[in-house]
Simulated scan of single mutants.
Amino acid sequence: MADPTGRVALVTGAARGIGRAIALRLASDGHDVAVNDLDSMQNELDVVAEEIKSAGVKSAAITADVSNAGSVNDMVETAADRLGSLDVMVANAGIAQVKPLLDVTPEDFDRMMAVNVKGVFLCFTAAARRMIDQGTGGKIIGACSIAGHKGFSLLGHYSASKFAVRAMTQAAAQEWAEHGITVNSYCPGIVDTAMWELIDAEIGALQGMDRGEAMAEFSKLIALGRIQTPQDVANFVSYLASGDSDYMTGQSVMIDGGIIFA
């Protein structure tokens, strides 16, 4: 059993992939962890919550759509009420879509922004309000991307959504510093998750590649020579959620194995 921190984290999009890895890592660090995903992911979410409990800490599984303000407010209050407080918010939930910009419909664009930008905004602000009321500071952490530092072909509206997260991270950090709240984001690269399997398949279809070929081509860009795992991301988020990062705020840090250098 990890040494208890007495702190409570909430991780959105936690039924699988990066969110699941973050939730389990924070549990191993000693946080009580509430996990969130959509109603359709309830079974997988419940499994993650049980895995967290097996680490010797408390958990709660809360379904909610992060693009809905009422749902997000209820999620934050439910997590804090069930587990005692809210000290770490990880706004991880997000979607991707591969399309040339000329083929992106207004509906495609609105859906991307609703989840990746509005969803982060709602999670950030709901968490900040709760943390300010508690009066003990906190850690707010968002899901950005290397696409928040460089726009990528065929991922134009996705890239735009991640640039927005980067800007919001900087603004929120400045506004909430007086309350002892730090705000940072993590920027993964090519990660072995269902999202990247989707990107690989869709880019492959557009460019006449077999499954796995697009991923292999992108992976040649990685200086460290291997595809990223969800645990690689979770290890960095552990730092952002800990006291070791108390003097760091407003940053969107690339954790990509060496693809983008800035």
Rank of each mutant, 00 (worst) to 15 (best):
T5Q: 09
A9H: 07
V11N: 07
T12M: 10
R16N: 09
G17E: 06
R20N: 04
L24P: 06
L24R: 14
L26T: 04
A27V: 11
V35W: 12
N36K: 14
M41Q: 15
L45C: 14
D46E: 15
V48G: 10
A55E: 14
A60F: 08
A61I: 10
I62K: 11
D65S: 14
V72A: 10
D74K: 13
V76Q: 07
E77D: 15
V88N: 06
M89S: 07
V90W: 01
A93Y: 02
A93M: 02
I95D: 01
P100F: 11
L101H: 00
L102W: 05
D103F: 03
V104E: 09
F109C: 01
F109I: 01
L122H: 02
T125Q: 13
I132M: 09
Q134E: 08
G138K: 07
I141P: 01
G142H: 02
G142R: 01
A143P: 05
A147L: 10
G148D: 03
K150G: 00
K150L: 12
L154E: 05
L155I: 04
G156F: 06
G156A: 12
S159H: 09
F163G: 07
V165I: 12
A167Q: 08
M168R: 05
M168N: 02
Q170F: 05
A172V: 11
E178D: 14
I181K: 05
V183I: 12
S185I: 03
S185W: 00
C187G: 03
I190S: 03
W196S: 02
L198S: 14
I203G: 01
L206W: 07
R211G: 00
G212M: 11
A223F: 08
T229A: 05
V233H: 06
A234E: 10
V237D: 05
L240F: 09
S242P: 11
G243Q: 11
S245P: 05
T249M: 06
T249R: 04
Q251R: 13
M254S: 09
M254K: 03
